[in-house]
Design a protein around this nucleic acid. Structure first.
Length: 272
DNA sequence: ACTATTTCCTGGATGC
DNA sequence: TGCATCCAGGAAATAG
């Protein structure tokens, strides 16, 4: 399940491969589509545009497009991978994977393919500047802007961390891992957390995300980067997916509870 | 203005 | 072996 570190890794890999290439044609499957813009709209924006850059915003992969049509504004192709989405860069000869929903043919002869079995992913286009996800980038926000995000919220801190309108890019894995490192229980009401603990949490989130990016993300279920390689951060998980296993600090078994329909893992002794 | 719950979707795991 | 059931979860929609 791609969260910020996985999406960052994928975006970097894509940028290396397709920056400067030109989209010649677009195919979009007719199966009930995970589209936020219409297929016609996506096709017309993408076709004959040059990929100027690929970068990440929250959990979205953003392709900045230059159009050669005079007077047309710069545009962006935005991909959200959902749970199981993948973007593959390959030769036209490569066999089409099951659940391929969109194919961009590039001037270089290669193709960018969007594959998503569970279809929680989303494709859309926007004029440059129009796409603005709410929420702040967790790796950019400083403590003084971080704390107010949670002030007055009665919701469990875990839910608040997952709320993309506050902080964008943190998902289930990194929320659990950050809370463990900060020593805060996932069910703690956001409004009851002290300034000191917010400082710990802020630091933990940045550390966890940076370490995960350095290791190419976490490969659980079927995540692979743009090269089809797995990441290694899953080996560093201290609580996520470790229900019943001993806490790496105190040996007490890790607990799993459900918060807002999401499984949440924590150590009952190390987290208060 | 918030918060909580439900819905979407399929592959893999589990149970009988 | 086969078949039914459950579960994973991001974000939008809906309900409270």
């Amino acid at each position: 399940m791609p969260e910020l570190p996985e999406v960052e890794t994928i975006a970097r890999g894509l940028a290396k491969r397709v920056t400067g290439d030109v989209v010649q044609s677009v195919w979009i499957g007719r199966k009930k589509q995970p589209l936020k813009s219409s297929a016609t709209e996506i096709t017309s924006v993408l076709e004959h545009s040059r990929i100027a850059a690929v970068h990440r915003m929250g959990k979205h992969i953003v392709f900045d497009l230059d159009h050669d049509r005079a007077g047309s504004r710069r545009a962006q192709w935005i991909v959200h991978l959902g749970m199981t989405g993948r973007l593959q860069v390959c030769d036209a000869q490569t066999e089409t994977a099951k659940h391929t929903h969109a194919i961009l043919t590039l001037a270089s002869g290669r193709e960018v393919r969007f594959i998503d079995p569970r279809r929680f992913g989303r494709l859309s286009v926007a004029s440059a500047g129009d796409f603005d996800t709410q929420g702040v980038e967790p790796l950019e926000v400083d403590l003084e802007h971080f704390i107010p995000l949670f002030q007055g919220r009665k919701t469990p801190i875990k839910s608040a961390l997952l709320n993309q309108k506050l902080l964008r890019g943190v998902g289930n894995i990194y929320a659990d891992e950050s809370l463990f490192r900060a020593g805060i229980r996932p069910r703690r009401r956001a409004s009851t957390i002290t300034r000191e603990n917010f400082a710990k949490l802020h630091r933990s989130i940045q550390e966890v995300l940076k370490e995960a990016i350095a290791l190419g993300g976490s490969s659980v279920s079927d995540y692979v980067n743009a090269d089809g390689e797995e990441g290694f951060f899953q080996l560093e998980h201290r609580v996520y997916g470790r229900e019943g296993e001993p806490c790496l600090v105190c040996k007490i078994p890790i607990k799993r509870i459900v918060i807002a329909g999401r499984s949440s893992h924590y150590c009952p002794k190390c987290q208060k």
